[in-house]
Every structure is written in C-alpha cells, then in structure tokens.
Simulated assay, not measured.
Amino acid sequence: AYMMGDDGTAAFSDKLVKVLRSVEKRYAQLFEQEAKLSSETGNLVFTGQADDPETLETLRKLGFERPESVSATIRAWHYGRYRATQSVEARERLTELMPDLLRTFGETTHADEAFMRFDQFISGLPAGIQLFSLLSSNPSLLSLIATIMSAAPKLAGIIAAKPHVFDGMLDPALMSELPTRDYLRARLSSFLSGAQHFEDILDRLRIFTFEHKFLIGIRMLTGVIDGTTAAGAFTHLADLAIGEALAAVVRELEAAHGVFPGGRVAVMGLGKLGSNELTAGSDIDLILLYDHDDEAMESDGPKPIDASRYFTRLTQRLIAALSAPTAEGVLYEVDMRLRPSGNMG
C-alpha cells in the first residue's frame, strides 16, 4: 500500500475495489452478446475440468445422445488442442459460433457422429479464424457442412483428410456450373500449367482430383445434379486424370529411352469406368494396348531398349503414377486384370 502512495491498507483496499468493479463492468459489456446467445440456446459452459450439468442437459435437448463426449471435445478446442484453435482470436470466433454450431448439428440425423467428424475436420486445419468467421456470417454454409458431416461420411472423410478441398465450396460458381467434361478439362489444364516436374504433376493431379470428387459429391448431395450426371462427372474426371498421367509418363520414358519407332499406346477403361458409372470411391479397371513398327528392334534414345521392355515399363510407370502414394495420397486404385474372371481371365 505504501509503495502505491497510500496511507494504509484501508485506502489501498478502497482503490482496489473501485478498479475491480470497473473491470467487472467492462467485462460484462464485452460479453453481453455472448451471454444473450447462450441464454437463447440454454446454458453452454465449457470451462474447467468437469462437465457443467446444465450444459449437458442443454446438449441433450439440442439432439445429442452423448453430451459428455461433445462437451469434452469443445473443452479441448477452448484449450487450444488443435492448431486451428490455438489463437485467442480463433477461440473468440468459435465461442460466438458455438450456439449456432450446436443447434445446426443437433438438428442432423446423426448429431453425435456428425459433430465428431467436424472435430476431425478442424483437427487438420492450419488455422481456424477464417473458417469460424465464415460459418458465423453464412448460416447456409454452416448448414451444408453439417449435412455433409451427417449424411455423407465419404465426403466428410475427404474434407477431413484434405481440408484444402473446402476452399472449392467457397466458389460462387459451384452451384451454377455443371461439372461437364469441358468444364473439368479447362480447370485441370489451368491447374497443371504451373507444374515444374514429373512429381509435381502427380501431386497436382491428386489435389485436383480429390477436390473435384468432393465438389461433384456436394452438387449431388444438394440436388444440383442427379446420380447419373454425377457418375458421368466422376468418369470424366478419372478419364482426364488418366490421360494427363499417361502423357507425363510418356515424356519421362522418352527422356530416358527415346521414342519407339511407330509406337502407339491406347488405354481402355473397363468396368464402371468403361460404362460411365464411376463413384467417388471406385477403383479403375484398365487395359493398355500398344503397337509399333514390326521392323523396329529398339527405341532411339540414349538408353535404347526393346519393345517388350519399353512398353512394360510404360505400363508399370502408369500404374505407379496413378496408384503410388505421394504426399497428396493415392490418385486411383488400379486393377489391370482382365474380366470377368479376375486374375484367371
């Protein structure tokens, strides 16, 4: 008290009480809107180590069957468990969003499972403030996210594993432009234009394909396209990706072994790829056909090889380009066995 210039503890106590009351008043004003939102929904308290009984009851009323798990998950968010919730600003936006977030997810068919898929999604985000701000200001986007997490587990898995696909949902043309072959070809060509080397092309093909599988699924989920149109779009997407992968493989092979005189290659799609019925999770059945000049003995490059080894390597490298895991995952699982009897064909 003496160090603060007061005559004694009583004078110091009076000054301290005035300061504390001022802080209390300003703090109450700061969170006035938050309190209002909480009171409209019910009690929502996610501080401390133990569950708040009134909060658990609110979660049950909102539609959650396992409110303890939901409460524990939200507390982990507020403790900065994920990178997306480590900044003070992100947690403030999340607090503002929470009542609407819980109401929207509580109205879905499988509220608990949908909420946990959303938790998995934000666990992979590098930052959360932009997402939480977008969802706060765009109720339709929040509703769409909840629908994906509840009704489309495969789409939810894609967005959780590859959060960057969420960016495509922000494109205002998403619901107005249909995913035709020409539309996908133009987008893919533009996306690959900056690729510097073979591995970069493979990664970009994976990024593009994952994103557009997701966006095609979103269009079908929201009724913009029907199942038949979606199957055609998934097939066009795979066909274009295979074509770009084949072109990249041919360039790599020719750089090492040259061109095989009269060499021609065609890739034939079988199964759902051949019948234009691919889904987001389909593998692809392929046959590679080749031809060359009968008189040619070997390729004309710096390391010439005979026809059998040349086209065998091309086939093997194409399969690897499509199915080998890179930092961006696997493009497609590939089956090169003849049908209808699998490896007995």
Rank of each mutant, 00 (worst) to 15 (best):
Q120R: 14
L125I: 12
E107C: 09
R103P: 00
A111G: 04
T104Q: 04
E107L: 14
I129Q: 11
T109G: 15
F132Y: 06
T108A: 10
M116V: 09
R117A: 10
I122Q: 04
T109I: 12
I122V: 15
L134E: 10
I129W: 08
F105N: 03
I122F: 07
G128V: 09
F121W: 05
G106D: 01
R103A: 15
A111F: 01
G106L: 07
H110C: 11
F132P: 00
S123F: 09
L125N: 07
F121N: 01
H110N: 13
S137L: 14
S133K: 08
F118C: 08
L131A: 04
A114R: 01
S133M: 10
R117S: 07
M116W: 07
R103I: 07
S136E: 15
S123Q: 13
S123W: 06
R117M: 09
F115E: 02
D119P: 01
F132T: 06
T104Y: 03
Q130F: 09
L125T: 07
A127Q: 13
A111I: 01
H110D: 12
T108P: 02
T104G: 04
A111R: 01
R103Y: 03
F121Y: 10
M116A: 08
E107K: 12
L134T: 09
G124L: 13
S137A: 15
D112S: 05
S136R: 15
G128Y: 00
F115G: 02
G106F: 04
L134D: 13
S136C: 14
S133H: 06
P126A: 15
G106K: 03
F115R: 00
I122P: 01
R117W: 05
